[in-house]
Write a protein that binds this DNA or RNA. Structure first.
Length: 196
DNA sequence: CGCCAGATTGACT
DNA sequence: GTCAATCTGGCGG
């Protein structure tokens, strides 16, 4: 099927408040080149994370590599392991601050057969409806940490996609200490959003 | 070098 | 609804 990929988003796209960037990322396309094949999906759910001020952030109680990356160049991937799963994030923040966006769910559009193999699941709604699941479906692991998603040559990129008009929001999922602001955003009505 | 919390998932009562 | 497997990063000793 001749679905055509659009342009990669420029690095400046990620130079903004994490919540603002998280909302803007809905409808964009996460694209992975895997063994010569394209695996891609429309981003339908995101969460914003901040730096030292955010009790749910990895930067809250540390000064390690994750913190440095969160405060570093925007547009780079952060791949972090939790509970044995890989979570895919992109560095996004205002100048001089720290933050990032967690990609929580996709609507698969290309390479669905390959995603089914990687996940070991047939149901298309179960392929990428969660941060750990989409990493497995796109064969994302720690080796993608710090890769720029704004370079055409990267094995993982984020591209222009669809217009999203109806954005819903909620508090973040799974965090033990949240901020008093809704920082989870998703496409209202999408069947590909993660389950609460 | 050992310990342990955690931005999860899926299997089970 | 509950619960535990899973494994890395960060920190204390």
């Amino acid at each position: 099927m001749g679905m055509k990929l659009k342009a990669v988003l420029p690095q400046e796209f990620y130079l903004g408040d994490p919540a603002y960037v998280a909302k803007k990322l809905l409808g964009k396309v996460l694209c992975r080149v895997y063994q010569g094949k394209i695996l891609a999906g429309v981003i339908v759910e995101t969460e914003a994370y901040y730096g030292k001020i955010d009790p749910a952030s990895r930067a809250y109680r540390s000064n390690g590599d994750l913190t440095k990356t969160l405060y570093g160049d925007v547009g780079k991937a952060i791949v972090y392991g939790v509970h044995g799963k890989w979570l895919f994030n992109v560095v996004a923040h205002l100048p001089g601050e720290g933050g990032g966006v967690l990609i929580r769910a996709l609507e698969p559009i290309m390479g669905i057969g390959e995603m089914k193999k990687l996940r070991g699941v047939e149901n298309v709604f179960e392929l990428t409806n969660g941060p750990g699941k989409l990493s497995q479906a796109l064969a994302i692991n720690k080796s993608f940490h710090k890769i720029p998603v704004y370079l055409e040559s990267s094995p993982i990129t984020i591209r222009m996609g669809l217009e999203v008009n109806d954005i819903a929001e909620s508090f973040r999922i799974g965090v033990t200490k949240d901020l008093p602001t809704p920082l989870r955003f998703y496409v209202r009505g999408s069947r590909f959003v993660s389950k609460p």
